[in-house]
């Protein structure tokens, strides 16, 4: 019975996911924020590799691409549905909030992996790097990362109206890029800002990716990073579910 109801949840989530991909994959904000911007940023970072060192900068190229790709799809899907009134229509469909949550997250995961793929190609062309020293760490890092960024974006876009939602999301994104361990290595981060860095989930995801790529770490050891990422993931999932519940059933 449990398996059957689990199948039903996944089935409806997949239907939502496939509909979202069909409806939103070619929307301008998805292309510009989810693919073009991270591609440009990753190329620019790649050109600075000589300055900071490969194992310090390359993980950030992956994390940045993952962050923007996974959040752009969710942000566009929720904002467009809020504006067109289709989100309110979901209220009348026989959907459980878990199905909706998973369905909306699958788009973020898919685009997260696409973003990582784009970063991978860019890294290969710039550095020739092809080896994953800890492939499972890398894959788990990307998977957890895409989910954390997706749920974070889901919370912001659910709470706020579309336009302030985009502005807030960009503040969060760029805070993570500049202060969340993605660009600057620990040695370059002012000590006064370190508590903020450790409060941002990007630092743990970046460390998992770094460990997967180079078997080394900078800010924090990989096992603590996994634990912290899972804590973030669980917390954000619970918050997203509660907010969704409150929005769907006022």
């Amino acid at each position: 019975m449990l398996v059957r109801s689990g199948d039903a949840v996944m089935n409806n989530s997949l239907i939502i996911f496939l509909k979202d991909v069909r409806e939103y994959y070619s929307k301008a904000p998805v292309i510009s924020w989810g693919i073009l911007f991270p591609l440009t940023a990753v190329v620019l970072m790649g050109l600075s590799i000589g300055l900071y060192g490969e194992n310090r900068l390359v993980p950030g190229m992956f994390t940045l691409s993952l962050l923007f790709a996974s959040t752009s799809m969710v942000q566009v899907a929720i904002s467009f549905e809020k504006m067109s009134g289709t989100f309110q229509r979901i209220l009348f469909l026989p959907l459980r909030d878990m199905e909706l949550l998973i369905g909306k997250s699958l788009g973020g995961i898919l685009y997260g992996f696409i973003g990582v793929g784009i970063a991978g190609f860019t890294v290969y062309f710039i550095t020739g790097h092809t080896i994953l020293l800890r492939p499972w760490f890398f894959i788990v890092g990307v998977l957890i990362g895409s989910l954390v960024f997706t749920f974070l974006c889901l919370i912001i876009t659910l709470i706020l109206d579309p336009i302030p939602g985009v502005a807030t999301l960009n503040i969060v994104r760029f805070t993570m890029v500049f202060l969340g361990g993605i660009i600057f290595p620990k040695v370059m981060m002012p000590k006064i800002l370190l508590p903020l860095t450790y409060a941002l989930p990007s630092v743990y995801i970046n460390e998992m990716i770094r460990f997967g790529l180079y078997n080394t770490w900078d800010y924090i050891d990989p096992y603590t990073s996994i634990a912290m990422s899972l804590i973030y993931l669980t917390t954000l999932f619970i918050i997203a579910r509660r907010i969704l519940d409150r929005i769907l059933y006022p």
Binding site: K19, R22, Y24, S84, G85, T86, R89, F92, L93, P94
Partner: peptide, 29 residues
Amino acid sequence: RKRIGVVPELPSLYPELTIYENLYFIGRI
């Protein structure tokens, strides 16, 4: 909800999907 159909006050299906795709999505859900 499995036994009711609702026509909301405002048009609220997916603008980028075709009529067929909209009906298919709703039917599958």
